[in-house]
């Protein structure tokens, strides 16, 4: 088992390096001169040359990559061209917003998907099952940005129950939660629809197994059998999907934060791209990629926690 964990950790670190190389290369292939962007079209050639020198743009590519990685490892992502502050400060300021939204979306997805999925499996080929399948089909088909607008129209504009957008931080927890409700739903609906279907089919597969019959023969209630015996055994495919969904939720915040005017990383990356703010974009793309890779790494480790048989095999 320790060998398994060691191998996965080594793979995790290696993947992060490959990702950083790809992100860096792509950013450098992009057309456009950062110096020109910063100083504007009227800048003199001397000023441009001086700025390129100051930004280190005249150094060889490899040297710039090494220094970027080295600085990034120490939390230094350079200075944002458009905000004129360190990128790390920008990220630190907006990270709580995005993390709150992604975590809320994940919790929403898990609660909705597991109860609908297990509920549908328990009512296999009955009305409840069909209902869940029908609703989840719609949920998968609805685009998040469109759903966001409908939610705002209904709950913020018409009913005035919830704010239409914005986020003032966690200093007022009630207000913070209220402003997170609509974005969370908009973000989580598609994911919970997908996950509900995965949960249902995975649970149905497990319910055919002999130990489920043993559990029922022990006089345990259907409910207990489903949640204590079927669900844990159905978790391996569920966790695989959840890992991918966490990545999708984090990247999904880009759209949702823009629709709801939430000051998070998604909105920051959108603004930085518009402003051709290369250091910021580069840092954010790297950060999003790192989150995706980390989610997959955590899923790999969870397999061993879920299934003790893997410990013996790996």
């Amino acid at each position: 088992m320790w060998y398994f964990i060691f191998r996965r950790t080594a793979g995790f670190v290696a993947t992060l390096f490959v990702v950083s190389a790809v992100v860096f290369s792509v950013m450098n292939i992009l057309p456009g001169d950062p110096a020109l962007t910063i100083l504007g079209l009227d800048a003199t050639d001397d000023a441009l040359a001086a700025l390129r020198e100051q930004l280190g743009l005249n150094q060889p590519v490899l040297a710039r990559y090494v220094s970027w990685v080295w600085n990034a490892l120490q939390g230094d992502f350079g200075i944002s061209h458009s905000f004129r502050v360190p990128v790390s400060e920008l990220i630190a300021e907006r990270l709580p917003m995005t993390v709150s939204l992604a975590v809320a979306g994940m919790i929403f997805t898990l609660v909705i998907a597991l109860s609908l999925g297990i509920g549908a499996a328990a009512r296999h080929r009955k009305v409840g099952d069909w209902g869940v399948m029908f609703i989840s089909q719609i949920g998968i088909a609805v685009p998040a940005f469109w759903l966001s607008m409908l939610l705002v129209l209904l709950f913020a504009v018409k009913l005035r129950w919830l704010p239409p957008g914005g986020f003032a931080g966690w200093s007022d927890p009630v207000a913070a939660m209220r402003s997170l409700v609509l974005p969370t739903i908009a973000l989580g609906v598609v994911q919970s629809a997908v996950l509900a279907r995965v949960t249902r089919s995975s649970a149905l597969e497990v319910m055919r197994q002999d130990f489920v019959r043993t559990a029922r023969a022990s006089g345990l209630s259907r409910r207990r059998v489903l949640w204590r015996h079927v669900l844990p055994n159905a978790l391996v495919p569920i966790v695989t999907i959840v890992g991918m969904q966490f990545a999708a939720l984090v990247t999904g915040t880009i759209v949702i934060e823009n629709v709801f005017y939430l000051p998070g990383l998604g909105r920051l990356i959108f603004q930085s791209i518009s402003n051709r703010d290369l250091p910021t974009v580069q840092a954010l793309v790297m950060l999003f990629a790192a989150i995706v890779v980390t989610a997959n790494f955590v899923v790999d480790l969870l397999y061993v926690v879920i299934d003790p048989r893997l410990k013996a095999r790996t």
Binding site: Q209, T214, G219, H229, P308, R309
Partner: peptide, 27 residues
């Protein structure tokens, strides 16, 4: 089902054919 749950294990219990798969593998 509720009435049967009271019967099972206490009045009537059963063992099955496949001991390899009749136990929850994760517990």
């Amino acid at each position: 089902e509720r009435t049967w749950q009271q019967m099972r294990a206490r009045r009537v219990a059963m063992i099955f054919q496949e001991p390899m798969s009749a136990l929850n593998p994760l517990r």
